[in-house]
């Protein structure tokens, strides 16, 4: 009897937390289809005449298209560099570095402790001096600190999970260290590494502060979305909501696609 109550209570609590987490998301999506009058009404309106006006405003604003292109270039490049440099570094740390491993890992992690402002301010000065302020290159290089360090940090445990014996088996078959990494360790660690890369993508895609500090015209999508708050005389709630939805869609779609790929690639048929 007590156990049933407990399970029921646990289930209820779970749903309550899910509801609390999803309610703002739901409200944002709902409001993105509302006219401003329905949004600002003191009594929440649930039944309303849906409108696509907000989305039209967002998508016809040239800044949004430019911001999307910039975001894809910046995040894509930083992520690519992060993978190319971070994954082998993580493997080397997991397998070959013994003495300084803890220190190196802590240093990498400590890059993520710093408040973003502390990173942004010196970089403004740096890029101004180099004449690269407000260029995509500046944002890409700065983002690489985030992508490389995050991928190393999450990649080390991914490679540590790969059994040493299978790498030794490959070495006994005559494969050198690079081939062992490429043909054995990397494919075996791949599912965990994909997770690491996705996580890194999400944090850079959503990054606002550094992008805001380092650019004025060549801005990324989060900066554009943030800019809507100061559009015109009144706060355009509908447009803000619509731009939030537009901003959130690419990571969602990407995660969905990759999860499906992982499921198919690594699924085990029943024994």
């Amino acid at each position: 009897m007590g156990r049933v109550t407990l399970r029921l209570g646990g289930g209820l609590l779970t749903w309550l937390i899910v509801l609390l987490a999803l309610l703002p998301v739901f409200w944002t999506i709902l409001s993105s289809f509302k006219s401003l009058r329905d949004i600002v009404s003191p009594i929440p309106v649930l039944v309303f005449q849906p409108t696509l006006e907000n989305y039209r405003t967002v998508l016809t604003t040239p800044a949004v298209r430019d911001g999307l292109v910039n975001s894809i270039i910046v995040v894509g490049s930083a992520l690519l560099i992060g993978v190319v440099l971070g994954v082998p570094a993580a493997y080397a740390l997991a397998r070959f570095v013994r003495r300084l491993k803890g220190d190196i890992q802590f240093f990498v992690l400590s890059l993520r402790f710093m408040p973003p402002v502390a990173v942004a301010l010196p970089f403004i000065a740096l890029w101004l001096d180099l004449g690269l302020y407000d260029t995509l290159i500046a944002v890409i290089v700065t983002y690489c600190i985030v992508t490389i360090s995050t991928i190393i940090w999450l990649g080390v445990p991914a490679f540590e999970q790969v059994p040493r014996a299978i790498e030794e088996a490959a070495a006994l078959e005559g494969y050198g260290p690079f081939a062992v990494f490429w043909k054995v360790a990397l494919p075996v660690a791949a599912p965990s590494l994909v997770g690491a890369v996705l996580f890194t993508f999400v944090i850079t895609w959503n990054e606002l502060l550094i992008a805001l500090a380092l650019t004025s015209r060549n801005v990324t999508l989060p900066v554009v979305a943030a800019g809507f708050t100061t559009l015109g005389m009144e706060v355009p709630w509908g447009v803000i909501n619509a731009s939030s939805v537009v901003l959130a869609l690419p990571p969602l779609i990407l995660v969905g696609l990759i999860m499906r790929f992982i499921d198919r690639y690594f699924s085990r048929p029943a024994r």
Partner: peptide, 20 residues
């Protein structure tokens, strides 16, 4: 000599098959 150049083959306790 590197393991691959010794003309030896090894069977491990954990089998050590390539899972992928």
């Amino acid at each position: 000599l590197a393991p691959g150049d010794r003309r030896v083959a090894m069977v491990f306790q954990s089998y050590a098959l390539y899972p992928h």
